[in-house]
């Protein structure tokens, strides 16, 4: 599974970083990006889905 943050849509609500810090980080401006090229380590798939389900800007996508 891979996650991706669309930087054009992300407005820095930081829900993804709060819910899944293993998968996302934020820059100095508070905008998010995916860690590890977006590759989701085994066992963290639910956290990736949780982040997607809580992004108010629909900026996160998942490739299964």
């Amino acid at each position: 599974m891979r996650v991706h943050v669309d930087p054009a849509k992300c407005q820095g609500h930081n829900r993804c970083y709060a819910l899944a810090p293993e998968l996302f980080d934020v820059d100095d401006y508070g905008n998010a990006f995916e860690l590890n090229d977006g590759v989701v380590p085994a066992g963290l798939e639910d956290k990736a889905r949780l982040a997607l389900a809580n992004c108010p800007e629909f900026a996160i996508s998942i490739e299964e």
Partner: peptide
């Protein structure tokens, strides 16, 4: 203003 209010 963003950096002053970023999570870090």
């Amino acid at each position: 203003l963003l950096p002053a209010f970023s999570p870090k």
